[in-house]
Design a protein around this nucleic acid. Structure first.
Length: 179
DNA sequence: TGAGCGGCTCCTTATATATCAGCTTCGG
DNA sequence: CCGAAGCTGATATATAAGGAGCCGCTCA
C-alpha cells in the first residue's frame, strides 16, 4: 500500500502570455517576480496545489495529493483564464501527470548496510554520511525508491500510482526472504 | 583571436523521508 | 554564563518549466 503525497503535472495553453499584466489582472493570488524566477506562481488557497505559469503558455502544477486534485486545479486555472479572456476554450491544451511521490512502509526497522548487499551494489546507493536513506533504482525503471532504517519508504519518479504500487510490491517481493 | 552558438548546470516549486551542523533561545 | 533543548537549513530523490551563466567548439 502506497500513499500519494505529491503529484507533479504539466500542460500547455499553446499561446504566449504576458505574465506581468496577467498577474496584475489576477491579483494577490498571483506572485510574479521575474528577477527571482521566470515563472508566475498562482495559488488558489493555502492547501491547494501551486500552479507555475510561464511566458510560453506552459505551466506546471505541484502539490496535488491525487490525480483528481491535479485535474480539478487545472480546470479551475483554465476557467479563470477563460473568464479573463486570455483563452477562448477552457480545454484546448494538453495536460499530463509527470511524477508521483509516494510513501510506503515496511512494518519493521531495517539494516541498510545489509540491504545494500541484498539489493545489489549496482542498483543501490547508500552513503549515510551524505544522506540517511538508501537509494534503490529498480531494473523496471518505473521509479526510484528511498529506503530508511526506520522501515519508511519514499517512492518517486513514477508516472502513475500503479507504477508506484508495482515498484513497492516488487521490492517487497525481492526482500521477502530477507525481512 | 574573437564572436557566436550549442549544450550543460543551476535556480525554483511541491513532497515524503532522516541525519547532520549550526544557530537561537531558555532555564538554572 | 553555560549547557541543553529546539529550530533551521543543508544533504538526496523525481519531475516539469524558462532564464542565467558558463564552458567548449567551430568558423571567419
Amino acid at each position: 500500500m502506497v500513499d500519494i503525497v505529491n503529484i507533479v503535472s504539466s500542460g500547455s495553453l499553446d499561446l504566449e502570455i504576458d505574465l506581468e499584466s496577467l498577474s496584475d489582472e489576477i491579483g494577490p493570488i498571483a506572485d510574479y517576480d521575474p528577477e527571482k524566477y521566470p515563472g508566475m506562481y498562482l495559488r488558489f488557497g493555502a492547501d491547494i496545489p501551486l500552479i507555475t505559469v510561464y511566458r510560453t503558455g506552459k505551466y506546471i502544477i505541484t502539490g496535488a495529493n491525487s490525480k483528481e486534485e491535479a485535474y480539478t486545479v487545472r480546470e479551475r486555472f483554465l476557467n479563470l483564464l477563460s473568464d479573463l479572456g486570455v483563452i477562448e476554450h477552457p480545454d484546448d491544451d494538453w495536460f499530463s501527470i509527470q511524477n508521483h511521490v509516494c510513501t510506503a512502509e515496511f512494518d519493521q526497522s531495517l539494516n541498510l548496510n545489509a540491504l545494500t548487499v541484498e539489493l545489489g551494489l549496482k542498483q543501490t546507493e547508500y552513503e549515510p554520511e551524505q544522506f540517511p536513506g538508501l537509494i534503490y533504482r529498480p531494473n523496471s525503471d518505473l521509479g526510484v525508491v528511498l529506503v530508511f532504517a526506520t522501515g519508511r519508504v519514499v517512492v518517486t519518479g513514477c508516472r502513475s500510482l500503479q507504477d508506484a504500487e508495482d515498484v513497492f510490491s516488487d521490492l517487497k517481493k525481492t526482500l521477502s526472504e530477507f525481512i
